[in-house]
């Protein structure tokens, strides 16, 4: 079993689960900057639990995660993350609110013949335009944000940054670019921060 250590958190990996990569490190770093002690946090699609485990090791948050893959859910739990097997927000009672919601979505444009077999496909397959999971997330997320609640979402230049920003504005979110990663070979990674304006819920 391979274990990696990042910012004082030890994370066990699993061969059937997406390995933490540049995108995971970037989202974890921004999450630590943005989160404050006592915040209720949800990570959607936790994978190995890397981002959640690193965040809760460094900030005193109250965190739960959802994950669709049985292998990833078991891995996240082994890494100390409170995890529920669920499809995005499907398991939550209406009226459940989070101060911070994290999402490292499958963001790569994916054709039918590029799909990978089994549960791992959920980690990669962003649909034909790379925004299938992103768009569904934004359709469902707002009722689960507390007043002034924050979304941190990692995306790639391949996902279409302008399109995602427009989608967030349409949802009534204030949008900021939180961090731009050093360039990878073929894409640029950023974290988009969306804040639900407090007045929207008064």
């Amino acid at each position: 079993m391979v274990t990696i250590t990042y910012r004082d958190a030890d994370i066990e990996l699993d061969e059937d689960v997406y390995d933490p990569a540049e995108d995971s490190y970037l989202l974890a770093d921004v999450a630590i900057d943005v989160a404050q002690d006592g915040m209720s946090v949800l990570e959607v699609g936790a994978g190995t639990g890397f981002v959640s485990a690193v965040l809760q090791t460094n900030v005193g948050v109250d965190l739960v995660a959802t994950e669709i893959s049985p292998f990833a859910a078991e891995c996240a739990k082994r890494n100390g993350v409170v995890v529920i097997r669920a499809d995005m927000f499907g398991c939550f009672r209406s009226g459940t609110k989070f101060d911070l919601i994290l999402f490292n979505p499958p963001y790569l444009p994916t054709a039918e013949d590029e799909k990978v077999p089994g549960w791992l496909n959920y980690a990669f397959d962003g649909g034909v335009d790379g925004r299938e999971a992103v768009n569904r997330f934004f359709e469902e997320v707002t009722p689960f944000l507390s007043n002034g609640g924050i979304i941190l979402m990692l995306i790639s230049s391949l996902t279409g940054m302008d399109e995602v920003k427009m989608r967030m504005l349409k949802q009534g979110l204030e949008v900021e670019i939180c961090n731009i990663d050093r360039d990878c070979f073929f894409e640029e990674l950023i974290v988009l921060k969306g804040t639900l304006k407090a007045s929207d819920q008064l």
Binding site: A73, K77, R85, A86
Partner: peptide, 12 residues
């Protein structure tokens, strides 16, 4: 199962 609630609808 093993401490994890499986809240997926049956078809998923």
């Amino acid at each position: 199962t093993d401490g994890i609630p499986n809240m997926l609808p049956p078809e998923l």
